Amino acid sequence: MTLRAALLVLAAGLSVLAAEPTPVGTWKTYDDHTGALHGLVEITESGGEFQGRILKSYDPAKPNPVCDHCEGARKGQPVIGMVFLWGLRKDGDTYRGGYILDPDNGKVYKARLQLADGGRKLAVRGFIGFSLLGRTQTWVRAE
Protein backbone atom coordinates (compact mmCIF):
# COMPACT_ATOMS: atom_id res chain seq x y z
CA MET A 1 0.00 0.00 0.00
CA THR A 2 2.85 2.43 0.78
CA LEU A 3 4.42 1.86 -2.63
CA ARG A 4 1.12 2.61 -4.35
CA ALA A 5 0.73 5.90 -2.42
CA ALA A 6 4.32 6.88 -3.26
CA LEU A 7 3.70 6.22 -6.96
CA LEU A 8 0.53 8.34 -6.89
CA VAL A 9 2.41 11.24 -5.30
CA LEU A 10 5.22 10.89 -7.85
CA ALA A 11 2.75 10.80 -10.76
CA ALA A 12 0.95 13.89 -9.44
CA GLY A 13 4.26 15.73 -9.15
CA LEU A 14 5.30 14.78 -12.66
CA SER A 15 2.01 15.99 -14.13
CA VAL A 16 2.51 19.38 -12.46
CA LEU A 17 6.03 19.60 -13.91
CA ALA A 18 4.77 18.64 -17.35
CA ALA A 19 2.24 21.50 -17.21
CA GLU A 20 4.93 24.10 -16.40
CA PRO A 21 4.83 26.78 -19.10
CA THR A 22 7.87 27.43 -21.30
CA PRO A 23 8.59 30.23 -23.75
CA VAL A 24 8.14 27.80 -26.66
CA GLY A 25 5.39 29.06 -28.95
CA THR A 26 4.30 32.10 -30.94
CA TRP A 27 4.45 35.58 -29.41
CA LYS A 28 3.05 38.98 -30.38
CA THR A 29 5.52 41.86 -30.09
CA TYR A 30 4.57 45.51 -29.69
CA ASP A 31 6.20 48.79 -30.70
CA ASP A 32 7.95 50.41 -27.72
CA HIS A 33 6.73 53.90 -28.61
CA THR A 34 3.20 53.45 -29.98
CA GLY A 35 2.15 50.16 -28.38
CA ALA A 36 0.93 48.97 -31.79
CA LEU A 37 1.30 45.33 -32.80
CA HIS A 38 4.79 45.08 -34.29
CA GLY A 39 5.30 41.44 -35.24
CA LEU A 40 5.03 37.73 -34.56
CA VAL A 41 7.91 35.71 -33.18
CA GLU A 42 8.27 31.95 -32.80
CA ILE A 43 10.40 30.53 -29.99
CA THR A 44 11.61 26.95 -30.27
CA GLU A 45 13.77 24.69 -28.09
CA SER A 46 16.37 22.16 -29.17
CA GLY A 47 18.74 20.36 -26.84
CA GLY A 48 17.85 22.68 -23.95
CA GLU A 49 18.65 25.81 -25.99
CA PHE A 50 15.95 28.30 -26.89
CA GLN A 51 15.94 30.46 -30.00
CA GLY A 52 13.50 32.79 -31.71
CA ARG A 53 12.79 33.73 -35.28
CA ILE A 54 10.64 36.46 -36.78
CA LEU A 55 7.49 35.17 -38.46
CA LYS A 56 5.74 38.38 -39.48
CA SER A 57 6.09 42.17 -39.43
CA TYR A 58 3.05 44.41 -39.09
CA ASP A 59 4.91 47.60 -39.99
CA PRO A 60 3.09 48.97 -43.09
CA ALA A 61 6.12 51.14 -43.91
CA LYS A 62 8.34 48.03 -44.15
CA PRO A 63 6.31 45.12 -45.56
CA ASN A 64 9.47 43.14 -46.47
CA PRO A 65 12.18 44.45 -44.13
CA VAL A 66 15.84 43.56 -44.55
CA CYS A 67 18.59 43.83 -41.96
CA ASP A 68 20.52 46.73 -43.52
CA HIS A 69 22.48 47.51 -40.35
CA CYS A 70 23.40 43.90 -39.51
CA GLU A 71 26.95 42.63 -39.84
CA GLY A 72 28.25 39.38 -41.27
CA ALA A 73 25.93 36.81 -42.81
CA ARG A 74 22.78 38.68 -41.69
CA LYS A 75 23.65 41.91 -43.55
CA GLY A 76 21.00 42.64 -46.17
CA GLN A 77 19.06 39.48 -45.35
CA PRO A 78 15.25 39.39 -45.00
CA VAL A 79 14.10 39.93 -41.43
CA ILE A 80 11.14 37.57 -41.89
CA GLY A 81 12.41 34.09 -41.04
CA MET A 82 15.58 35.41 -39.39
CA VAL A 83 16.80 33.86 -36.14
CA PHE A 84 17.28 36.92 -33.94
CA LEU A 85 17.23 35.32 -30.47
CA TRP A 86 19.57 32.44 -29.62
CA GLY A 87 21.59 30.63 -26.98
CA LEU A 88 19.15 30.91 -24.06
CA ARG A 89 19.00 28.17 -21.44
CA LYS A 90 16.65 27.69 -18.51
CA ASP A 91 18.13 28.82 -15.19
CA GLY A 92 15.49 28.52 -12.48
CA ASP A 93 12.56 30.73 -13.50
CA THR A 94 14.67 32.66 -16.01
CA TYR A 95 16.09 31.89 -19.44
CA ARG A 96 19.55 33.44 -19.86
CA GLY A 97 22.96 33.15 -21.43
CA GLY A 98 21.82 34.05 -24.91
CA TYR A 99 21.67 36.98 -27.28
CA ILE A 100 19.09 39.06 -29.11
CA LEU A 101 19.54 41.03 -32.33
CA ASP A 102 17.68 44.28 -32.91
CA PRO A 103 17.10 44.18 -36.70
CA ASP A 104 16.34 47.92 -36.74
CA ASN A 105 19.90 48.88 -35.74
CA GLY A 106 21.84 45.65 -36.30
CA LYS A 107 23.11 45.54 -32.71
CA VAL A 108 23.37 42.31 -30.71
CA TYR A 109 22.63 42.40 -26.98
CA LYS A 110 22.75 39.87 -24.18
CA ALA A 111 19.27 38.52 -23.51
CA ARG A 112 17.15 37.27 -20.65
CA LEU A 113 13.57 35.94 -20.73
CA GLN A 114 11.09 35.45 -17.90
CA LEU A 115 7.55 34.16 -18.15
CA ALA A 116 4.76 36.08 -16.41
CA ASP A 117 1.00 35.85 -15.99
CA GLY A 118 0.94 32.04 -15.98
CA GLY A 119 2.96 31.82 -19.21
CA ARG A 120 0.73 34.23 -21.15
CA LYS A 121 3.35 37.00 -21.15
CA LEU A 122 7.09 37.01 -21.66
CA ALA A 123 9.44 39.69 -20.33
CA VAL A 124 12.26 39.96 -22.89
CA ARG A 125 15.27 41.95 -21.70
CA GLY A 126 18.12 42.98 -23.95
CA PHE A 127 21.15 44.55 -22.29
CA ILE A 128 24.79 45.52 -22.60
CA GLY A 129 27.12 44.13 -19.95
CA PHE A 130 24.90 44.29 -16.88
CA SER A 131 21.17 43.66 -16.91
CA LEU A 132 20.64 47.15 -15.45
CA LEU A 133 21.79 48.69 -18.74
CA GLY A 134 19.05 47.66 -21.12
CA ARG A 135 15.36 47.58 -21.86
CA THR A 136 12.53 45.12 -21.39
CA GLN A 137 9.68 44.40 -23.77
CA THR A 138 6.59 42.42 -22.83
CA TRP A 139 5.46 39.96 -25.45
CA VAL A 140 2.03 38.32 -25.36
CA ARG A 141 1.47 34.69 -26.27
CA ALA A 142 -0.51 34.40 -29.52
CA GLU A 143 -3.73 32.43 -29.02
Rank of each mutant, 00 (worst) to 15 (best):
R74V: 03
P78H: 07
G47Y: 06
L132V: 12
V108D: 05
T22I: 05
V124C: 03
S15G: 13
W139I: 01
G47E: 01
Q114D: 09
G134R: 00
L101W: 00
G97R: 04
P21F: 00
L101K: 03
Y109D: 06
C67L: 05
V124T: 00
G48A: 05
W86T: 04
H69A: 12
T26D: 07
F84E: 06
V16G: 03
L113R: 04
A111P: 02
L88R: 03
L37N: 08
V41R: 09
V140N: 04
L132T: 06
R89H: 11
P63G: 03
S131M: 03
G97T: 02
V79K: 11
R120W: 10
R53F: 05
V140T: 09
L101T: 03
W27M: 01
S46N: 11
I80W: 11
R112E: 12
V140S: 10
D32R: 12
V124A: 11
G118K: 15
L132G: 11
Y58S: 02
S131A: 04
L7Y: 02
L3V: 11
G97K: 00
P78V: 01
L7S: 10
V41Y: 10
A36G: 09
E49N: 05
G25F: 10
V66H: 07
N64L: 10
P60Q: 00
E143H: 09
A12R: 00
A18C: 15
I100D: 03
Y99T: 15
I43L: 13
P23K: 10
G72A: 01
S46A: 15
S131W: 15
V108A: 06
V124I: 06
G35I: 02
Q114F: 04
K75R: 08
G72M: 13
D104F: 02
T34S: 09
E71T: 13
V140H: 06
H33Q: 14
V41A: 04
E71Q: 15
D104T: 05
Y58Q: 07
E42C: 03
Q137D: 11
E45M: 09
G72L: 02
K62C: 04
E42S: 10
V79T: 06
T22G: 04
L132F: 12
S46P: 12
L88T: 05
Y99F: 15
R141P: 07
M1G: 13
K75P: 12
D68E: 12
E71C: 11
G81T: 01
T29A: 06
G13M: 13
A61T: 14
A123S: 13
Q51F: 02
L88C: 02
E45P: 04
T26P: 10
I80E: 07
A6C: 08
A5Q: 14
G76V: 02
Q51A: 11
R4F: 14
T29F: 04
A11E: 14
H38A: 11
L37Y: 03
D104L: 05
I128M: 12
G39M: 07
G119N: 02
I43H: 00
G134M: 02
D32F: 09
K110L: 07
L55W: 04
A61F: 04
L133A: 08
Q137F: 01
K56I: 01
P60T: 00
L88P: 01
L101S: 00
F84H: 09
V83M: 15
V9M: 10
G72T: 01
